[in-house]
Design a protein around this nucleic acid. Structure first.
Lengths: 121, 121
DNA sequence: ACTATATTTCGTCGAATGCCGAAATGTCAA
DNA sequence: TTGACATTTCGGCATTCGACGAAATATAGT
């Protein structure tokens, strides 16, 4: 129950759901997600930690960056069903399409540039 | 998106999820749910309205009572999947079993008695 | 029409949430 | 070891949420 509620609470925020949808295409680092959502890196970091503690994402450290991705096949049934549910329900919405488009632009430049861009604000 | 987030936000509360699990067995009126959760009728009414606006439950008026139930087959895919997900993930938990037991006791007496019992507090 | 009763709405309060910027942490390169 | 940089943690502030009781609404019986 506790575990399940962590999942539902994690899904109860627009930006966190957007992150899950974005990760469908592959792993992303904090600054890329920050750019996608238009939120401060610290805010995104907090969101990612909530998703992580719910088991909805995994992470990998590479040099200075931390990459987040959807969980592997070994995840709980509850987790896998939750992610499938999100994808199936929202994958076709305008919001998701718009984010995919925006993400394509973000992936064109390398993370370093994005982080520097964020510093200027 | 808006609609989906209404669902996730509705699921992000322990008591509302408990209600969905309880309704698996059949329709219930406000005072019965209030008794099950140990919360004031006005609080339960608010929870039910949130579930209702998310499309997760339907209602029926009979005399003084309003009965709530899970939606019929014609519900959205997102709705049906959400409910199935809840049931599958939590149906076997101790919390759910305990609530089923408690519910059995509540169903033994008629709603009128329960409401009067609530007035004495 | 009046009363009793089941539910909903409203006002309020404390707790939790989401956001930011600043400071702290960790990692790589010089 | 020092400096640069990506991320996380912390402290704050405004908003939302969940709880209650009181008042309002709706329905049935007298």
């Amino acid at each position: 129950m506790r575990e399940f509620m962590r999942i539902t609470k994690a899904l109860a925020d627009d930006n966190r759901v957007r992150v899950l949808l974005a990760l469908k295409a592959g792993e992303l680092c904090v600054c890329q997600i920050s750019e996608l959502c238009g939120l401060a890196p610290s805010t995104i970091s907090k969101h990612l930690s909530i998703l992580y503690q719910a088991g909805l994402i995994e992470s990998r450290k590479e040099e200075r960056w931390v990459f987040y991705r959807l969980p592997s096949k070994e995840a709980t049934i509850a987790i896998r069903e939750a992610i499938d549910w999100v994808q199936k329900s929202l994958g076709g919405t305008p919001q998701a399409a718009e984010d995919r488009k925006k993400l394509k632009q973000i992936l064109k430049v390398d993370p370093t540039t994005i982080c520097q861009r964020q510093l200027r604000r």
